[in-house]
Amino acid sequence: MSGIVNDIVQSIMTPGYTAKGVIKLMFYAFYVLFATLAAMVVVTGFNGHVIALLLLSICLFLTIRWFIAEMERVKAQEQAKKD
């Protein structure tokens, strides 16, 4: 856990996009959210509201992954220009 704490502190002190550990932790939190909502869908008898929450959380997760991939692409382009 100290690796994640160290990563958070380093990301605060460094300008730009640097927090790899924080992103990994966020993805794990999303996986737990998906599992919880999937279990709730079954327990509630396929309640429409819970299904909608599950779909919204999946869309949010995919959007965040896309954004992070775009940030990585921009960072790689900037590195290529410097080299």
Rank of each mutant, 00 (worst) to 15 (best):
T18D: 07
S11I: 03
L53T: 06
A52C: 02
K24Y: 06
D83E: 15
V43C: 07
V42C: 11
T63L: 14
L56R: 09
L25M: 09
I64H: 05
A39T: 11
A76S: 12
A52Y: 04
L25D: 05
L53V: 06
F46I: 05
N47P: 02
V5C: 04
F67M: 12
L37V: 03
M1K: 09
I68T: 07
V32G: 03
K24V: 08
T14F: 01
T36M: 07
F34K: 12
G3S: 08
H49Q: 09
M40E: 13
M71G: 14
M71F: 00
I64E: 07
T44W: 04
M71D: 06
G48K: 10
L37N: 06
S11W: 04
I58N: 03
W66T: 15
E72D: 13
M13H: 01
W66L: 13
L60W: 01
V9K: 10
T44V: 03
G21S: 05
L54G: 10
K20I: 11
K81S: 09
I4Q: 06
L33R: 13
G48W: 02
F46G: 08
D83G: 15
K75G: 08
A52M: 09
T14R: 10
L62C: 12
V74A: 09
G3V: 03
K81I: 04
V5K: 06
A19H: 05
L62I: 13
